[in-house]
């Protein structure tokens, strides 16, 4: 079992994270990964140049670690990897990598799904979009909270 939870201040390289997870999972039968990308448009359709993720000096990494450990406890997985950007992320660049490995596919799919639902509402970041419409803070939606709550 391995758990990786990391805060990335420079460009996130999903291909490197997936390669590392695959290397760790050589004895497993399944690897599932998700990459979240900064959108080029806001909910209202205005163009967005960058997403800025403010973070807390200690609580942010703690929250990533807590979510990753919780995924490992909830599902029959062998490896969990969460890497999250902070700072300024230009539109089109990766924000988050969430991956899990397991002996059989279902646990890895569920763990990756769980990781993202938890990160959306519990990872300690404050996000704002900067673009055509100025600067706008982004909070989780009701759907995000419902997605998290379905895991109990």
């Amino acid at each position: 079992m391995s758990i990786v939870a990391r805060l990335e201040e420079s460009r996130l390289r999903p291909e490197q994270e997936l390669a590392a997870l695959l290397e760790q999972a050589r004895q497993d039968g399944a690897v599932v990964s998700f990459v979240g990308v900064a959108r080029p448009t806001s909910k209202t359709g205005a163009s967005v140049d960058q997403l800025v993720l403010d973070h807390h000096p200690t609580l942010t990494l703690q929250s990533l670690q807590e979510v990753a450990v919780s995924a490992a406890e909830h599902f029959d997985v062998t490896h969990v990897r969460v890497v999250h950007r902070c700072g300024k992320v230009p539109s089109g660049e990766p924000i988050v990598f969430a991956g899990a490995a397991s002996a059989h596919r279902r646990a890895a799919f569920d763990a990756a799904d769980y990781l993202m639902d938890r990160l959306k509402t519990d990872a300690v970041f404050w996000k704002r979009e900067i673009g055509e419409a100025g600067s706008e803070w982004i909070e989780p939606t009701d759907a995000d909270y419902s997605d998290r709550d379905r895991w109990g």
Partner: peptide, 25 residues
């Protein structure tokens, strides 16, 4: 760095942090 509830009593030496709703991913 510890979450506290509303009735937590503060001292003059405390550093209090107010965190608005968080959002990752």
């Amino acid at each position: 760095d510890q979450l506290v509830n509303d009735d937590h009593v503060l001292s003059a030496l405390d550093t209090v942090e107010f965190l608005p709703p968080v959002s990752g991913g």
